[in-house]
Design a protein around this nucleic acid. Sequence first.
DNA 1: AATCAAAACTGACTAATATCATATTTTGAG
DNA 2: CTCAAAATATGATATTAGTCAGTTTTGATT
Lengths: 229, 229
Amino acid sequence: MNTRCENCIIRQFNSLRAMSKEELKRVSDTKTTKTIKKGEAIFAEGEKLNGVFCVRDGVSKLSKLSANGKDQIVKLASKGEVMGQRSVIAEESSNLSAIAVSDMEVCFIPKEGIVDVLHQNPNFTVEVLRHMAHDLREADDVIVNMSQKTVKQRIAEAFLYLRDNFGEDADGYLSITLSREDIANVVGTATESCIRIISEFKKKKYIKTSGKKIGVQNEKALRDLVDGF
Amino acid sequence: MNTRCENCIIRQFNSLRAMSKEELKRVSDTKTTKTIKKGEAIFAEGEKLNGVFCVRDGVSKLSKLSANGKDQIVKLASKGEVMGQRSVIAEESSNLSAIAVSDMEVCFIPKEGIVDVLHQNPNFTVEVLRHMAHDLREADDVIVNMSQKTVKQRIAEAFLYLRDNFGEDADGYLSITLSREDIANVVGTATESCIRIISEFKKKKYIKTSGKKIGVQNEKALRDLVDGF
DNA sequence: AATCAAAACTGACTAATATCATATTTTGAG
DNA sequence: CTCAAAATATGATATTAGTCAGTTTTGATT
């Protein structure tokens, strides 16, 4: 793969932009680019990661398997996001597994390339810290939503979230396509319950569907639902 | 207040231990110590924090108010923990409010004292990063528990967690005393449901109570319950 | 185009949990 | 010590969401 980090626009969206030209060149020399097919795993829960993965294209779900065999999707990572940093920084094995939700292209950066810079370039470290602080806030919000909102509210919120964070296509459908099961795993409910609520929303014209694709049709209704009427 | 950070043992438990003597002295010069009564607020959700709070004694609950008026407790901070760093680092107003669960003594450290060192001492920054990585992992675990475990399992787990993290007294009661309402807010359930399950656990001799105090009596039974029998 | 498995969907039933009402106990202020 | 308020407790009922069983649709493959 001939693309060099120095020339990669993606890094504008993540902490790598705080690296100096020199550091970036060194990272670029050790990185490798991989193509991953939809459904394939990038890494698994419990695995020791010896590097981080920078998403160049596509979307990956970061999930955790629970005792009863269900997956809980904790985060969706798309273009520009770095996966696995938490584990590399904490020097622990991964608490999440990453599976491609669409065909992907990711760069693997060996951890030495990251850790060395962390200890030498405070700007970079602070930038990583900021990102993690942001992730932590989001996680707090998810906790509150999980415990205080109904499944219906969480599904409504998920659609708004997906639209705001991944965009929609020309016809008004969400750019990201998830199976009903994945949606259920994002909001933490049974697949059947999720499908039932999607049907209800469709009947009420809150959303429209076309195959697996889903589009927000009545933003206000969804928002009112989330906020408790 | 005459206690100096350099001599404070508490800091061994948090990221401040990665500061140099010099840095610590400077921090110490700007810090103030406050006494907070049980039930009083240290800071509120939405408030701009111009510093962080280091817990010297007592316990604080970090919670988030939801639309329906219920509090979700996201974390319990005790001796050695630093509160408010996330907000200071992300330069956002606080996403959580902090209320004392017992009488407390906390040190307030103005943010300049922290931010300056963050940009100058990579060891300190990495240490803070490690802590935040740990908090993030815990948050992920909480998300999964919330969505995949029953209220009964979450309550059982909460008691084990409280014992492991805050210890128990000579008579085998948890060192930390929370109201039933607070326990309900930790596990994300209605107070009545929480009380009912506590009664059930007591009847089954999984726990013992004495006033508000709760003690683990049958660890194995609780653990089995958490793990799904 | 026919086939087949996976995904999406629907209905009936059950289990878990919230809500509302009310009783009882504990606690802290004066 | 007394009393009111707050916390704890319990019962009845309603609501939400999960489970199981089955049907239909979709899409990939030959």
